[in-house]
Each structure stands twice: as C-alpha cells, then as structure tokens.
Amino acid sequence: MFGRSTTTNFDRLLEKATSHLLLEPDWTSILQISDCIRQGDVQPKYALNATKKKLYAQNPHVALYALQVLESCVKNCGAPFHQEITSRSFMEELRELIKTTTNENVKNKILELIQTWAHAFRNEPSYRAVQDTVNLMKMEGFKFPALKESDAMFAADTAPEWADGDCCHRCRVQFTVVQRKHHCRNCGQIFCGKCSSRNSAIPRFGIEKEVRVCEACWEKLNK
C-alpha cells in the first residue's frame, strides 16, 4: 500500500515544480518527483493523474512546467510510467487539450512531446497509440515542430535501477546512521558521500541540472 505521507510528499513536490512563481524549471523538485516514482513511493498512475490536472491550469506557466515534469518522468521512470503515458485515453486527452488551449507555447510543447514519444516508441507495438495519434493529427492538419532525435534517445538510455546494499560500492565502507548512502544517478550504484562527491549533468537521461555521480561516472561524463 502507498501511504498518505508518500503521496503528500509527491503532491508537495509537484506544487513546487509547477508553481506559477518560477522563472525557470525547478530541477531539484522535478528529479525528486522522478525518484518518488522510481522508488515506488507513488504509483505511476497516481503521478500521471496528479500532474495531468496541472495541464488545465488557467496560468500557462503552470501547464508548461507540468509538461516539463511529464517529459522528465518519461525519460527517467522507465516502462511503468511509459505504459501510463502512452495509453489511448491519455493520448486522446492531449489531443483534445491541443484543440482547446489558447496558449501557443503550451500547444507547441504538447505537439513536441507527442512527436518525440512517437519516435522513441516507434518499435514498441504496445505503445502504438502514440504513433496513431500523431498520424491522426497530421491528417487533421496539425503542424509538428522539427523532431530533435536527441530528445528521443531515452528509450535506449533509460536511467538505471538503483542498487541497494550495506556498504559503498567503491571503498566498501559500511553504511551507518552517520555514514549515509548515496546513489550515483548515472550508474545507479550506491556509494558513501566521499566516493560520490562529484556533480554532473546527464543529457541522455534528460537531466540538465548537475546531480550527484560517482568518481568513475564523472570521469566518463566529463571527458
């Protein structure tokens, strides 16, 4: 069962990540939202439904930040979230939202995401609803932006599952209340603070903000 405290924490993070007061994406909150889903603190269906409500906000900035959250979750949360996002019912909702929204930036971002997802999942028969939606909208006269294939690479480069353990993967020090464990967001292994003190962006996972990585991954990412 998913406790109320975990969903409350998710809702709090979502409010922060989609606040109309933001001047730029709150990557810390966005990545924590992805973590909540990947760790099983909230179900993908709950996360999608909660974020979906933000798409109908009167303030277009809220809707745009909600779309940013969805984009990050698709890139970072793997198949369980993909199954929710590619359902025919959600695709139909996005299609209707494009028709009703009056904000061109929101409309263009939705078109961009649908096209990117269609390309990323083009070889997945179970996700056919996305490609069908693109084809239907093209027949209806919608113009899609130029496809950035780099944005669709996440299907092959899904963020790794997080490992667990009692000691650091590198120096083997035992974890305690004082010696806390940390995950490298690039490889998913578990480290002590000393062995994961570096920070780096990870573009292939859609992580533009610098986040914690281990020494070995930092060297690979920053060659």
Rank of each mutant, 00 (worst) to 15 (best):
T6V: 10
R172Q: 12
C73Y: 01
F191M: 04
D41C: 10
N222R: 11
Y65I: 01
T28H: 09
H61N: 08
R95M: 08
E96Q: 10
E210G: 08
W162A: 09
C171S: 09
K109G: 01
K138E: 13
P60N: 05
I30K: 00
S29F: 03
N186H: 15
P125H: 05
R12D: 15
V62C: 04
Q83V: 07
R95I: 01
S29E: 09
C214H: 01
A79W: 14
R4V: 11
A129D: 07
R95L: 04
Q189R: 11
S19Q: 07
V106I: 11
T176I: 09
S89E: 13
L94P: 01
I190H: 02
A17M: 10
L48Y: 15
A57V: 09
D11G: 02
R212D: 05
T28Q: 08
E161R: 09
R185V: 06
F2S: 12
A201Q: 07
N135E: 15
P160H: 02
P125N: 06
V177C: 08
C192N: 03
A201V: 14
P25G: 04
V213F: 02
L55Y: 08
R170Q: 13
D11K: 04
Y56C: 06
C167T: 05
N135R: 13
K52W: 11
K194P: 03
L147S: 03
L31Y: 15
H20C: 09
N108S: 11
D41L: 14
A155T: 12
A66N: 03
K75G: 00
R180E: 13
P44W: 04
M137Y: 03
K16C: 09
I98A: 06
A79H: 14
T86G: 04
R88Q: 12
H20F: 13
D35F: 12
D166N: 12
P25T: 07
I37L: 11
L70Y: 08
N103R: 00
R170W: 14
T7G: 06
V134F: 07
S29C: 12
P44L: 07
A152M: 09
K220M: 05
R170C: 09
G40E: 08
K99S: 13
V62F: 03
I207P: 00
Y65E: 03
I30F: 01
A50H: 06
D151Q: 15
L22P: 07
C168N: 03
V213K: 00
H119L: 13
I37M: 06
V74I: 12
I37W: 05
E161L: 12
V211I: 14
A159T: 05
V134H: 01
C184K: 00
W218F: 15
Q68I: 05
F90L: 10
F81D: 02
R128Y: 06
A159S: 04
S72V: 06
P80I: 06
S5N: 10
T176F: 13
G193I: 14
S197H: 10
G3V: 03
E219N: 01
T86Y: 03
C192I: 08
N186I: 05
S150K: 15
D151E: 13
K45V: 14
F205C: 01
H82L: 08
K107Y: 06
H20N: 11
S72M: 08
K138Y: 07
E215W: 04
K209F: 13
F90D: 01
D41K: 12
A156G: 13
E124A: 06
N59G: 08
C167G: 04
Q43H: 14
T51N: 07
C171P: 07
I33W: 07
A47Y: 08
A159P: 00
V134W: 02
F175W: 05
N9T: 09
H20T: 09
